[in-house]
Simulated assay, not measured.
Amino acid sequence: MKLPPDPTAEDALVPVSALQHYLFCPRQCALIHIEQVWTEDGATAEGRLVHQRVDGGRPDRRGGIRTVRGLVLRSLEYGLAGKADAVEFHGTTPCPVEYKRGRPKNHRADEVQLCAQALCLEEMFGVPVLEGALFYGVTRKRILVVFDTELRGLTVQMAAACRKMIAFGKTPPPQAKPACQRCSLAETCSPTRLEKPPSVQNWLLSQIGSASEQPLM
């Protein structure tokens, strides 16, 4: 049986953003990161522009806090790589800040993505990163996220599961759920149609029935 590659290998690193996709929907994650499928809608386009504006900003210092934008991240321990929207340095302690176009969600995908950034920063700078922040464009508010034991455990679990799925290159089967309505890949994924595809036997029976109804020449 093929084993997943060593997570410390450079070519085995998975994007930090993949964890957010995986927690939202493993199939969505696989379509994006295994099958390289991407469909942009209004929401994803707006989100992309938000990230471009933030990542493209210059470093600055205000009130003793130095902010670095578009910082490249990497963790060989957890097999992750990516880029932070912004990292605020309070002295030598980094604090990741992730910008989202929408509003706070009823799941922890955004928190896991932010915590994954913190794990990378801890490995890169050798200091504990205890908290970060999520800024949502709709509410125009920053939400403090504490990287406690529960969130760290969930993040490490998602990193391992996501890395394993991508390494094996197997896309999970579709499963229709309410969240599919908010997914830009809904049309490509076709969960309602593909979750319970018609059987070959039923198709053959329908074809035989159609043929028997044809008039003889």
Rank of each mutant, 00 (worst) to 15 (best):
L134E: 14
V14C: 04
D110A: 15
T155V: 09
R58A: 05
C183M: 07
L144P: 03
L19H: 15
P15W: 14
L154Q: 14
A179D: 13
P178V: 10
D41Q: 06
S17N: 11
A81Q: 13
M158D: 00
F24D: 14
W203S: 09
F24T: 06
L130H: 12
I208A: 05
M1E: 01
C115W: 04
E77P: 00
Q181I: 11
G42N: 02
P4T: 02
V87F: 08
A167Y: 03
P59W: 11
H33I: 10
F147M: 08
Q157F: 12
R182S: 14
K2A: 05
G70C: 05
E10I: 06
Q175S: 04
C29I: 14
L185A: 11
Q113D: 05
G57P: 00
M158G: 01
T67N: 10
T67I: 02
K105D: 06
A160H: 01
R108Q: 03
H33Y: 15
T67E: 12
V138E: 15
M158Q: 04
Q207D: 00
W38V: 01
I166R: 06
Y136H: 15
M158E: 09
Q201V: 10
H33V: 05
A30W: 04
T149M: 09
E187G: 04
D110E: 15
K141M: 05
E88P: 03
L49Y: 13
P94C: 10
A109Q: 09
Y78G: 02
A30H: 02
E187S: 03
S184W: 00
A159K: 05
V68N: 03
P7Q: 07
S206K: 08
A159N: 04
E10N: 06
E77H: 12
K141W: 11
D41R: 13
F147Y: 13
I32T: 14
S17M: 07
A116N: 02
W38N: 07
G209W: 11
V50E: 08
T149Y: 04
V87L: 11
R66W: 08
H90E: 12
D110H: 15
K196W: 01
G56I: 02
F168R: 05
G57S: 14
L49R: 15
S210V: 10
Q36R: 15
G132V: 12
L80N: 02
L13D: 05
F135C: 07
D110R: 06
A186E: 14
A116C: 12
P172W: 13
Y78L: 07
L130F: 13
G169H: 07
Q181H: 11
V16L: 13
G153P: 01
I143P: 00
C95Q: 10
G47H: 06
T149A: 13
E88C: 07
L151W: 06
N106I: 09
G132P: 04
L114E: 03
M124H: 00
P198I: 07
E213W: 01
Q113G: 09
K177R: 15
A186T: 10
L216D: 03
D148A: 06
D110S: 11
R66F: 01
L216N: 02
A116L: 12
A109W: 12
